[in-house]
């Protein structure tokens, strides 16, 4: 802009040049940004596609329903699926009611009090704690101090703590979305607070609360670090019979056969298959959650 020639013509030229330049910059910037967007989608497609293409051939009924054989180089992943199922059910039995009740307390009983703000901050922190730290804690408390040993119950409790913030947060959001007129309407009809919560608020918030449960299930089924020292076994020929038994689990199974199996090359197909099963679980849970969310928002409209 500080060029020396000062006649009108050049000024005009400069102005149009400036306009041209900004246009050009904008075009370049926008295309770069669009490209970055495609890169991110590309990464997702790459990862998912890679696992789906390589794992699809392995997936079969036998793969899902048989135990691993020959040093985990062939056979299926049935015990790992059962183990993960046990851990998911166990952690949800623990975390879901607790999280929902915490959410109710935070939204219905002490709205915007300093205690709630404190709880919210702490819950946020809790969700930021790395999963391996939960593993350490679970080992110290459940496995060693309480003496559960490596077991379904120790793993479930550890995983439950890990997903508690997710359940609390979604419950809180769900309850917030219930209009206040519902509450005052119910109370005006003579219902007690508890009746209002159980008969009016929870039913209308329920679908949204369920999405929290579903997302938590997706998270729990994929976590490895917290169960590493609290629940899983490298290989178990039999299925668990009580909550104090060790189990195999899908994510740990994938880790083991990908890094330290008896014959890594030979067990590669099984690793692909296991990864695919994990991805399918996560995909299904995400789809289910967004499906419920969509249905709810349509109904409320």
């Amino acid at each position: 802009m500080e060029q020396s020639k000062e006649n009108e013509f050049s000024l005009q030229l400069k102005a149009s040049g400036y306009r041209l330049r900004t246009r050009m910059t904008q075009q370049v910037a926008f295309w770069t940004i669009r490209l970055l967007g495609f890169v991110v989608v590309g990464i997702l497609v790459w990862i998912q596609g890679f696992i789906i293409v390589n794992g699809a051939g392995v997936l079969s009924w036998d793969f899902l329903t048989q135990a691993p054989t020959e040093g985990m180089t062939s056979g299926g992943i049935f015990p790992a699926i059962v183990g993960t199922l046990c851990l998911v059910v166990g952690s949800m039995v623990f975390a879901f009611p607790l999280g929902v009740m915490a959410g109710i307390y935070m939204n219905e009983y002490t709205k915007d009090h300093w205690t709630v703000r404190l709880i919210r901050v702490v819950t946020n922190n809790l969700s930021g704690i790395p999963s391996i730290v939960f593993g350490l804690f679970g080992m110290a408390l459940f496995v060693n101090t309480l003496g559960f040993g490596d077991s379904i119950i120790a793993g479930s409790l550890t995983l439950g703590l890990l997903v508690l913030p997710i359940v609390i947060r979604t419950t809180e959001e769900a309850l917030k979305a219930v209009p206040d007129s519902y509450r005052s309407g119910s109370v005006a009809l003579g219902a007690s607070k508890l009746q209002t919560i159980f008969r009016v608020i929870l039913p209308s918030a329920f679908p949204n609360i369920i999405t929290g449960l579903i997302l938590a299930i997706g998270r729990v089924s994929g976590e490895t670090a917290p169960i590493l020292f609290t629940a899983v076994a490298y290989f178990l020929p039999k299925l668990p019979t009580s909550i104090f038994d060790q189990v195999m689990a899908l994510p740990y199974h994938l880790y083991v056969i990908a890094t330290s199996g008896t014959d890594i090359e030979a067990s590669r197909p099984i690793a692909y298959g296991t990864a695919l099963v994990l991805i399918i679980i996560v995909l299904a849970m995400n789809l289910l959650a967004s499906f419920i969310r969509k249905r709810v928002s349509r109904k409320q409209r």
């Binding site: 991110v40 997702l44 990862i47 998912q48 994929g222 995909l283």
Partner: peptide
């Protein structure tokens, strides 16, 4: 920049990226 349509593709894609278990990332990396 993105239109409503593009956002509808990107948003769930990013959610999925966040949802992939870390062992699967590790396996893919390996």
């Amino acid at each position: 920049l993105a239109g409503e349509r593009m956002r509808k593709v990107l948003k769930p894609a990013i959610e999925l990226l966040a949802g992939i278990p870390s062992v699967v990332y590790g396996f893919f990396g390996l």
